[in-house]
Simulated scan of single mutants.
Amino acid sequence: ESHSVSVLLALLHPSFFLPTDVAKQVHVHCDHGSDESGDGSSMLPWRTLMHARDELRRMPRRFRVQVLVQGTCYPRDRDGRVDLSLPLLELEDLDSGSQGREVEYSSLHQHQPALLSSGLTIPASAWQRLVGSIFTANLSALGVSRGSLGSFLKPTTTGGDGLGSCSWNMTELFFGGIPMTLARYPNLNKDGTFGWMQIDKVVDDQSQFSIASLRAKRWRKEEDIWIHGYWGFDWADSHLPVKSLRFTKNETFVVVDAPVLYGFKPRAKFYAVNLKSELDSPGEYFIDRDEMLIYFWPPGDLDTRQCVLSMGNDGILVGANQEQLDICRSSNLPVKQGKRSGGIDAFSEYMEKNEKEKK
């Protein structure tokens, strides 16, 4: 009898009548949906991408599936609380569907795309005017810990394998959905392109060079100076921590504390970054880790445009199985409004490494 009831329910289910080439649509509304009482319909959408994924895994795969998403999606725990340490979505091979029965995630409204965010909103009320156009906010009061702020990542090699080391997992500031600029010198040009300094003389191609400028005297009280440049070739760049600065009558000698990709060369272009003393342009910000304060020169009205700090460690993780998802999670790269994302890049690196090991 129970089998008869099950068959009857299956026949009554709308998906039973869908041919394999017709897409089934399910809905996720990250602002107003519910994982507990929702059913994935437009009237009762789910709230999180992870729950939608889990429900899709339980569905029979006789049709293509469109997951239509709207609102601002945050990673949430099983009780619905925002937890920025969690990924927004983890996908394995079984989540792809099959040929003709693919699973597609997209925004419900193309003119108003859904936002996937692992960011912390800084309310307008948290900002206090410091001086002129520069504002400051207390990060500790917003629940931000010093350990969650991340950092630049030092290169580990002087050769081509270090190309992937030009990265960071440092918290970034977004204003109106646009990433702002960590205080630097030279500033960005008016057209948005980078401004550069140039190496004058190379003292040691792995540790020291000089520039024909004394601008760096302004940086003597800075505690965590980094430089970003194309040291040997215009297609190979990296961030380097500055160990010390030394000044003569008209030169500055810069000593670094990490391997230099392909070595320093004269006229190589670079800029200095993470400099509180260089916060002198709209759109720039600086985070004081000791005082847990963020300084910001907003390029617009703080009351009408949202400020978001990227805080999450994972965005969307893509792998073929759980082992590869774990690799993705430990090989994270930057994403919008989230410090890092394993994603396809980390998965590609994992596969490339495996191929090298096979050879």
Rank of each mutant, 00 (worst) to 15 (best):
A126V: 06
F233C: 09
P334H: 05
L84K: 05
E92Y: 14
S148D: 10
A212K: 15
D205W: 03
L182P: 00
H13D: 14
H51G: 08
W46R: 12
L89F: 05
M59F: 09
W231E: 00
P14D: 01
G342A: 09
D257N: 15
A268N: 06
K269T: 10
P266M: 00
L130W: 13
T193H: 13
Y350C: 09
F253A: 06
R61F: 12
A141N: 13
S348M: 09
L56D: 10
G300R: 08
A258N: 06
L309Y: 03
A126E: 06
W231G: 01
P298Q: 02
P186K: 02
R215S: 14
C73V: 07
F17L: 15
L173F: 01
L149T: 13
F152A: 05
L309F: 04
E355D: 13
L89M: 11
E223H: 12
A258E: 04
G147T: 11
F174D: 00
L333Y: 05
P123N: 10
S348W: 04
L309H: 08
G338T: 12
C307M: 07
M43C: 08
S117M: 04
C328W: 02
T158M: 02
V144T: 07
P87T: 09
G283R: 03
V335Q: 12
L188N: 06
E291I: 08
A346M: 05
D314R: 12
E352F: 06
C166W: 05
W297S: 15
T72V: 15
